[in-house]
Computed example of a mutant assay.
Amino acid sequence: MLTGKRIKIRPLEEDDIDMLFQWSNDEEVNYWSSGAWPLNSLQTKEQLIEKFLDSPPDSYRYAILNENDSLIGTIGFREINVPSRSATLFIVIGNKPYWGQGYGTDATITFVRFLFTQWNFHRISLDTWDENLRAIRAYEKVGFKIEGRQREARFVLGNYHDAVLMGLLRDEFLTLHGKL
């Protein structure tokens, strides 16, 4: 188990599926996590078990717990590129009372440290959409830099939005957050 200042990160378990099912069918959670309501949601519990517990070998998903060991979100990585030692990060705080409280930033710092020090990645990337300013600010606190945009790459509630591409290098992160 990984431990941050306020969070813990552990592998997802079958007991987590009911909460993940609730979040996957929550319009507001999906709107901010991907801007894709309802396109990527309305999944059955069986589909969620396959997506979260039976992940393909190139995707790793974990649970984010609060101080009381309650599930508040998920975090993980995919698109591993072995020669360049890079991967793509994803995170969702699905439990809305924990939004804007620093839990996502704490989880991201804790998890990125793990990816850089234990997985020996050189670079972590991620993307969001241009109106998700809270997420962009949180990623910038971790050290991610905006590296580009994909114009009108996201379709959100009838309108096209730019995807914001962000990246973080190992040395930048360790300089900002220490080696620990």
Results as ranks from 00 to 15, higher is better:
N66V: 02
L65I: 01
T74P: 00
I64V: 15
I91T: 14
R85I: 01
I80R: 14
I80S: 08
E67N: 15
P83C: 11
R78Q: 12
I80H: 05
D58E: 14
K96R: 15
I72P: 01
E79M: 12
R61P: 00
R78E: 13
N66C: 01
I75Q: 07
N66D: 15
D69P: 01
G73H: 07
N95R: 11
P83G: 12
N81T: 13
A63K: 04
K96G: 04
E67R: 14
L89C: 09
I93S: 05
P83V: 12
G73Q: 11
L65H: 03
L89R: 04
K96T: 13
S84F: 07
G76A: 06
L71R: 02
L89E: 04
I64A: 07
N95D: 13
A63F: 01
E67S: 15
T88K: 14
G73P: 10
L89Q: 03
E79F: 04
E79T: 04
G94P: 07
N68K: 10
I91G: 02
N95H: 15
F90N: 11
Y62F: 15
P97C: 05
T88A: 12
D58A: 06
P83K: 15
S84I: 03
N68Q: 11
A87L: 13
P56G: 14
A87N: 06
L89I: 08
P83D: 13
Y60L: 09
V92F: 04
T74W: 02
V92K: 06
R85V: 00
N81G: 05
P83R: 13
P56V: 11
N81M: 10
S55A: 09
N81Q: 13
N66A: 05
K96E: 03
S59K: 15
S55I: 07
S84K: 04
I80N: 01
G94L: 09
K96L: 10
P97V: 02
L89N: 06
N68P: 00
G73N: 10
E79S: 12
E67L: 11
N66L: 06
V92P: 00
P56L: 09
D54V: 06
I93Q: 04
A87F: 05
R85L: 09
Y60N: 10
I72M: 05
P83T: 13
G94Y: 07
I91N: 02
F77N: 08
T74I: 05
R61F: 11
D58N: 15
A63M: 04
V82G: 01
I80E: 13
S70E: 12
E67H: 14
F90L: 06
R85G: 00
R85K: 12
G76N: 11
A63L: 03
L89G: 06
I64P: 04
L65K: 03
R61E: 07
S84P: 00
D54T: 09
V82M: 09
N95T: 12
Y62C: 01
E67D: 13
P97R: 07
T74S: 11
A63Y: 03
P57H: 08
V92L: 09
